[in-house]
């Protein structure tokens, strides 16, 4: 809040670089909010999307229908509408109910509404990523696992998902970069993330270009960091012959030599 008042004081004329850097810092601190928003939404999307994809492939008919309905709904409406629906609809309802039942006030934050909206929508998209990965695996492996005595759930968990997740990392990285930029919409609810702070500074100082340029840079940096981190994860979890990139013969030979060498040393 100090930064906010500092920014307000200098709002009439932003002339010196020192003043700009102070308000720029205020905007940049929004990165923390944005990062938390994305971390929450991606996690929610993963936790819901993974089982959703599994039941879409392996579940009984009626569960498959339900999953399909979920995906169809959350892919079908804009994030912005979803945010309003959750914040003004669902949250108000819960708060009222809480008041009636416990005779106390419950405050659900815009931040929570934003995470929910982004996360629920992301779950729909992520489930399709994982579903595609599961279906791209040879069906025989599931059967082989069943023949060894795995339950359907066990086969999905120990044989299919470890492969599907690895295959999904590049697409997941794409989902991250899309979701990150979708999160800018959260400013409408008053979540103090990058965009809300940018709009505030821009409209009070009229230095629109500088602040929107700064916001662009911040989003770019967050995208870059996330995508790089996921690429590193992809490289770390890579298994020869599995995944999106065709292996070149010489890579295979090199890895084979390295593995055999490693196996020799105790």
């Amino acid at each position: 809040m100090e930064a906010l008042s500092a920014a307000l004081i200098s709002a009439d004329a932003l002339t010196s670089l020192a003043e700009f850097s102070q308000s720029a810092l205020f905007v940049a601190r929004g990165s923390g909010y944005t990062a938390a928003l994305i971390a929450g939404a991606m996690t929610l999307g993963l936790v819901m999307g993974l089982p959703l994809s599994a039941v879409e492939v392996y579940g009984p008919g009626w569960i498959r229908k339900l999953a399909w309905l979920y995906v169809w709904f959350f892919r079908g409406i804009p994030i912005l509408v979803l945010m309003f629906l959750i914040y003004f609809g669902v949250f108000d309802f819960i708060e009222d109910l809480y008041q009636k039942v416990f005779e106390d006030r419950l405050i659900l934050s815009p931040f929570m509404a934003s995470v929910l909206a982004l996360g629920l929508a992301s779950a729909a998209y992520q489930s399709q990523i994982f579903k595609g990965a599961i279906l791209s695996l040879p069906p025989g492996q599931f059967m082989a696992a069943r023949a060894l005595g795995f339950t359907r759930l066990g086969a999905a968990r120990h044989v299919i998902l470890p492969q599907a997740i690895r295959i999904s990392i590049p697409a997941w990285s794409n989902e991250y970069s899309i979701l990150l930029k979708d999160s800018a919409v959260a400013y409408v609810l008053g979540t103090m993330e990058i965009m809300a702070r940018t709009r505030f500074m821009a409209s009070t100082t009229f230095a629109h270009i500088r602040f929107y340029f700064l916001a662009g840079l911040l989003y770019f940096a967050l995208t870059w960091i996330g995508v790089k981190a996921l690429a590193a994860l992809d490289a770390k979890t890579r298994v020869p012959g599995l995944g999106h990139e065709a292996y070149r013969a010489e890579d295979l030979a090199l890895e084979e030599a390295a593995l055999l060498e490693k196996a020799k040393s105790p």
């Binding site: 025989g140 060894l148 005595g149 470890p162």
Partner: peptide, 25 residues
């Protein structure tokens, strides 16, 4: 269902196209 899984453990199966788990050594 559970017993069927145990029953399958007692019968080994070999497939034409091996069906090894690709993510495991």
């Amino acid at each position: 269902r559970r017993n069927i899984c145990e029953f399958r453990q007692k019968i080994g199966m070999i497939f034409q196209d091996f069906n090894l788990f690709d993510h495991l050594c």
